[in-house]
C-alpha cells in the first residue's frame, strides 16, 4: 500500500455503451481523488456521471465497457483485477450511496440484515451478535435509532433511509465512498441535514468522497475540489475556491450563474441550448454549439487539457490553449457545425 496522497487515479478513461447505436458516454477522462477529500462531480443529467461511477465500481451495465484508459486504486491496476479480487475490494475499499435510497434498499429484508450481510461477506469470522451490534452502532452514528435494525425500508422516512444507506456504506470503513446524487430525492431541509451529516462523518473518519450531483451550489458548499463534466468529458477541475472565484471554462461559468444566489441576487441565467447527442458528439470542442465565446477553431479541433496554475486547475478549452492552436483557421469543408445557431 503506497502512501501517496492520491487514492484514485483515472487516466484518459473512455466508456462505450455498445448499441446500436454505440454511445461513448465517457470520453478521455483524467481525474484523481486524494485521500480524505470530497471531490465534487457536477454536470447536467446525461453527461456521463453515473457511467463514470459504473467504471469506477466496475459495475457497468452489460453493454457498457471501458474501451480506453486506466484506473489505479491505491497503486493497484483496478481494471486488471479479476472478479473475485474486485469482490474483495468492494465495500472494504470502495462503497456506494445512490440517489434513491428507497430503490436501493431491498424491500423484503431488514435494514440490519442488509448492513450485516456486507459485514459477514467480508469478515466471515465475525460472530453473529457482533455483526448486529456493529449495525446498531452504525445506525447510531448516523443518528438513526438503533432499534431500526429490525425495520424495513418502507417503515423509514426518506431522510432516515438515506442515513441508513450512509451507515451501510461506512460499515467496513472504506477508503472511498461514492455518492451518486445522494440528496436529489430529498426535500431541501432533509437534504441540508444529510449534507451536514456527510460532512461531519467525513471530517471524523477521513474517508474520501466522490460526490456526484447536478447541483453546483451544493458542491460549492461541500466539496474540496470540483470536477465539471460536459458530454462525457471533464472540462474543468479545480479547488472549490478556484471554481467559485476563477471558473474558467465557459460552461462552468454558465453553470455557476445558472443557480440563484441568495447573497448576490443573481438571476437564473442558464446556458442556452441543450446537451449534445452522445451518439454523434459535435466535432471539435463538444461545447462549441452552446458556447458564447466560441472561435473558429472550436468546431474543428478538440481542445486539450491545460493546467492553468500548475497545481491542478485544469481546463479543456481553446480559450486557454497554446496560442498556436487558437490561431489556426478551420480547414475547408470541416467546420460545418460552427455556423449553426445555439
Amino acid at each position: 500500500m503506497s502512501h501517496s496522497s492520491v487514492l484514485l487515479q483515472m487516466e484518459n478513461l473512455s466508456v462505450t455503451y455498445f448499441g446500436p447505436p454505440d454511445v461513448v458516454a465517457v470520453h478521455g477522462v483524467t481525474l484523481d481523488v486524494k485521500r480524505g477529500e470530497i471531490l465534487g462531480l457536477a454536470g447536467e443529467s446525461g453527461c456521463g456521471k453515473t457511467t463514470l461511477i459504473g467504471a469506477l465500481t466496475r459495475l457497468l451495465p452489460d453493454n457498457g465497457e471501458v474501451t480506453h484508459g486506466r484506473i489505479e486504486f491505491d497503486g493497484v491496476d483496478w481494471l486488471g483485477l479479476n472478479e473475485r479480487e474486485v469482490d474483495q475490494w468492494r465495500w472494504t475499499r470502495v462503497s456506494l450511496v445512490s440517489q434513491s435510497a428507497m430503490n436501493s434498499l431491498n424491500p423484503v429484508i431488514s435494514i440490519g440484515e442488509q448492513i450485516t450481510d456486507a459485514i459477514f461477506a467480508h469478515e466471515p469470522r465475525t460472530p453473529k451478535a457482533d455483526g448486529w451490534d456493529r449495525a446498531r452502532s452504525l445506525l447510531r452514528m448516523v443518528e438513526v435509532d438503533p432499534s431500526h435494525v429490525h425495520s424495513y425500508a418502507h417503515e423509514l422516512s426518506g431522510g432516515m433511509r438515506q442515513r441508513a444507506m450512509i451507515a451501510m456504506a461506512l460499515a467496513l470503513k472504506p477508503d472511498l465512498v461514492i455518492m451518486d446524487e445522494p440528496t436529489t430525492a430529498l426535500d431541501v431541509v432533509v437534504q441540508a441535514q444529510i449534507i451536514h451529516e456527510i460532512r461531519s462523518l467525513q471530517e471524523r473518519l477521513r474517508f474520501s468522497v466522490i460526490f456526484v450531483t447536478h447541483d453546483m451550489s451544493l458542491l460549492l458548499s461541500i466539496a474540496d475540489r470540483i470536477a465539471i463534466m460536459y458530454a462525457g468529458e471533464v472540462v474543468e477541475v479545480g479547488t472549490r475556491s478556484i471554481l467559485n472565484h476563477e471558473a474558467s471554462h465557459p460552461y462552468t461559468r454558465g453553470l455557476i450563474q445558472s443557480f440563484p444566489s441568495v447573497f448576490h441576487q443573481r438571476t437564473r441565467a442558464g446556458i442556452p441550448g441543450a446537451p449534445p447527442s452522445m451518439v454523434n458528439p459535435p466535432s471539435g470542442c463538444r461545447f462549441h454549439g452552446r458556447c458564447e465565446e466560441r472561435m473558429a477553431v472550436c468546431s474543428v479541433y478538440a481542445p486539450e487539457d491545460r493546467d492553468l496554475d500548475g497545481i491542478g486547475h485544469r481546463v479543456r478549452c481553446h480559450l486557454f490553449g497554446d496560442s498556436g492552436i487558437t490561431d489556426r483557421q478551420p480547414l475547408a469543408g470541416r467546420g460545418e457545425g460552427s455556423g449553426k445557431s445555439c
Binding site: 475490494w89 468492494r90 465495500w91 456506494l96 445512490s98
Partner: peptide, 8 residues
Amino acid sequence: HMARAKGL
C-alpha cells in the same frame, strides 16, 4: 446493483 457493489 447495490448488492453487487457490496461484494456479496
